[in-house]
């Protein structure tokens, strides 16, 4: 085991796959020699693997995604990067109409083994076009798989699985977890999609969430322990496929559920999870399911506004106290 930050663990996973399989290549804006990616995830890879395999592109999101599709269906394993999740709006046709649907609408004639990496989330005061959390859009698109790694020890195993997956994977990262440290295994390991991880065991209430909200939930759980409230924290790790079993089992144990994400509330992943739980575990619920999300507004710029927008520990703790 080596302690490393999320960013380095992610890069290590990509690097291992590039060493293992020469079909794997990266493309995106400013991922190469001069910059190494806007969040430095790919820094050093162009030097090691060359600019052919770590390919800087023009600012052309739809064609970056589309080129990944074309390369994937003809024998390559592209890992495309869209610099900010907000900019996927420019590539939605290729992601949602082409990559997601090709296997299906062509009757299984082709696979689309591509990974589209991008980064969601606020907390950097970069306003409405660089801060959104849009993962539910992709969870709502059949044909895509959606990974949402929140911890360094998971991101390495998940990116390796994503690169080897025969289907298109939206691999979502979060700006505020890149610097989170954790012990990461040195040996090769893969984390299967569709397996949630119980990050903390507890008996009184279950918190299910994603990205930075999980880090906050763990802090809240520690705090609440002092008040005698035992909180279980579940990280789904992938939204598609979704591990319902771990969640349902947890709810059956605790009888209470708080859902926490940074998404705006209406139509968020938390809404889907709430619906699943009431369908499959209604009789075990001892209290209404609580949702902690951002308000239904664009992401604001000014620090007091953004701090209000993004759910904090206090709001998460309050939601737990409300139902315990």
């Amino acid at each position: 085991m080596t302690e490393m930050v999320y960013r380095e663990a992610l890069k290590a996973g990509i690097r291992e796959e590039m060493l293992r399989d020469e079909r794997v290549f990266l493309l995106g804006e400013d991922i190469g020699l001069n910059w190494g990616g806007a969040f430095k995830v790919t820094k050093g890879l162009a030097e090691e693997f060359g600019v052919e395999r770590v390919r800087d592109t023009p600012i052309s999101e739809n064609t970056i995604a589309g080129a990944a599709v074309g390369a994937a269906i003809t024998g390559m394993r592209p890992v495309a990067e869209i610099m900010f999740g907000d900019l996927i709006t420019l590539a939605m046709d290729q992601v949602c109409n082409q990559a997601a649907k090709m296997r299906y609408m062509f009757g299984g004639q082709t696979s689309v083994p591509l990974v589209l990496r991008t980064v969601f989330g606020g907390g950097k005061n970069i306003a409405s076009h660089h801060s959104q959390s849009l993962e539910s859009w992709f969870m709502h698109t059949p044909g895509l798989k959606v990974a949402v790694p929140a911890f360094a020890s998971d991101v390495k195993g998940l990116i390796k699985t994503a690169i080897r997956d025969p289907d298109p994977v939206l691999f979502a990262e979060h700006k505020l977890v890149y610097d989170k440290k954790e012990e990461v295994p040195d040996d090769e390991y893969l984390i299967p999609f569709g397996e949630a991880k119980v990050r903390r065991e507890g008996a009184d209430v279950t918190i299910w969430g994603t990205f930075i909200m999980l880090h906050k939930a763990l802090e809240v759980a520690e705090e609440l322990q002092k008040e005698g409230i035992s909180v279980e924290v579940i990280d789904p790790r992938t939204l598609v496929p979704l591990d319902k079993k771990t969640l349902i089992e947890s709810v059956k144990k605790t009888g209470r559920l708080v859902l926490v994400t940074e998404e705006t509330k209406t139509g968020a992943t938390t809404a889907e999870i709430a619906a699943i739980v009431q369908e499959e575990a209604f009789d075990w619920l001892d209290a209404p399911i609580k949702r902690v999300n951002a308000p239904d507004t664009p992401v604001p710029f000014s620090p007091p506004l953004e701090n209000y927008f993004i759910p904090d520990n206090k709001r998460i703790a309050q939601a737990v106290r409300d139902i315990v």
């Binding site: 064609t63 390369a71 269906i73």
Partner: peptide
């Protein structure tokens, strides 16, 4: 696919990026 057709598409102009990727793949 087996006779070399990458796909027909219902979205006008969506085939161009895919062709770029396929040609990049042929080159690489």
């Amino acid at each position: 696919f087996d006779v070399g057709v990458l796909g027909a598409t219902g979205v006008v102009a969506s085939g161009l990026p895919i062709a770029v990727g396929a040609a990049l793949s042929c080159q690489m």
